[in-house]
């Protein structure tokens, strides 16, 4: 915290601070239905998001992106870790959660499943404000206002039902629903992934406009590296429930330090045939998160893996650029990896 106050003169304040977030889902089995293991969905994730920035979170399926989002919203209770919004730690219990949920909202991937089929668009959007004690009339007016803000004509949409809307329109409604609570932070969990490319671009541009108009902070979760590149200021890469690399978007895309990030980036389809991937793409699936490999969790698929990677777990270490961190033994000074930077003093 001392670090943030010192730099706050030039950089915006930290709005969301996540420390050592953990969630292990227990697995029960055997004759007595005892706990036989745990899926380490999110295992010690820490990051911070500053006001007005967009943090992109990328990773393969099952790496814990969505679980992280649900943990942030307290839709799942974290096993350990602290979450602070605007410098205040989110208190457990109803009141703390309610206040947090007003300041932080979420847009889900499945635009259809996230709208109640029996409610009109108006009722859906006005529901959140009503829960927070906004008078019904004001809430309904707010529904109209926000529907207009997301580019849908209130008169023709307010009394309709979700099944009468297209995917893009439904996702706009979901965005309006999230914004109706006037939050500071919006978590976009694969919010555009299910849309057509052309609609996706429209919704992305809408999101960018809304961010500017309402002074929003985004947490943009996606598996689409191109989209993340387009919207994010900083990017966080997750692998098997852990953060492997985090840094400013350009730095991460041009000078990634972690072999996993490099593998992900090289798997990105290139438009130019001359810029085809040269580094071998990743083989196989990620290891089972029930029994993650010891040491570095990526060593089973890493081309640079050495003995130290199997024994010691690398921690996030500052690398070349400002705000660029990587959890790889090759980036840690004196880690014992042959490609690690040497200690200058020795």
């Amino acid at each position: 915290m001392t670090d943030t106050t010192a730099t706050s003169t030039e950089r915006p304040p930290v709005l969301l601070q996540v420390d050592d977030l953990k969630k292990h889902f227990p697995i029960f089995g055997g004759a007595l239905n005892r706990q036989v293991g745990a899926v380490q969905a999110v295992d010690g994730v820490s990051f911070e998001v500053r006001r007005g920035e967009t943090l992109g979170i990328v990773g393969e399926s099952g790496c814990g992106k969505s679980t992280t989002a649900k943990l942030l919203m307290h839709l799942i209770e974290p096993d350990a870790g602290a979450i602070s919004v605007g410098g205040e730690e989110v208190r457990r219990g109803r009141r703390g959660l309610r206040e947090m949920r007003r300041r932080m909202q979420m847009v889900f991937q499945d635009s259809y499943a996230s709208l109640n089929p029996r409610l009109t668009i108006e009722d859906t959007i006005a529901f959140g404000p009503k829960v927070h004690g906004v008078p019904v009339k004001v809430a309904k007016q707010r529904a109209r206002d926000f529907l207009a803000k997301v580019g849908l004509d209130p008169n023709s949409f307010i009394r309709r039902y979700p099944h009468e809307l297209s995917g893009g329109q439904r996702q706009r409604v979901n965005i309006a629903r999230a914004l109706a609570l006037e939050p500071d932070i919006v978590i976009l969990d694969e919010a555009v992934s299910a849309l057509d490319k052309s609609v996706e671009a429209q919704v992305l541009n809408l999101l960018m406009d809304l961010k500017r108009d309402f002074d929003l902070t985004y947490l943009f979760i996606s598996h689409d590296l191109n989209v993340v590149h387009y919207v994010s200021d900083r990017v966080l890469v997750m692998y098997l429930g852990k953060v492997v690399e985090v840094g400013p978007v350009e730095m991460l895309y041009t000078a990634s330090q972690h072999p996993y990030t490099r593998a992900l980036l090289s798997a990105m389809p290139a438009m130019d045939p001359d810029k085809r991937a040269t580094e071998p793409p990743l083989a196989g699936d990620p290891p089972n998160p029930i029994n993650p490999p010891p040491g570095c969790r990526f060593h089973t698929r890493c081309v640079h893996a050495e003995e130290v990677c199997k024994l010691k777990e690398p921690f996030l270490t500052r690398v070349a650029g400002e705000g660029h961190f990587s959890a790889c033994h090759m980036a840690i000074e004196g880690s014992g990896h042959s490609q690690a930077p040497q200690r200058v003093a020795a």
Binding site: M73, R94, R98, F108, G128, H132, R177, L181
Partner: peptide, 14 residues
């Protein structure tokens, strides 16, 4: 288990 119930919970509803 549907998302709209999760979304409602995320709205802060009891």
């Amino acid at each position: 288990k549907l998302d709209y119930v999760e979304a409602a919970r995320a709205s802060g509803a009891g």
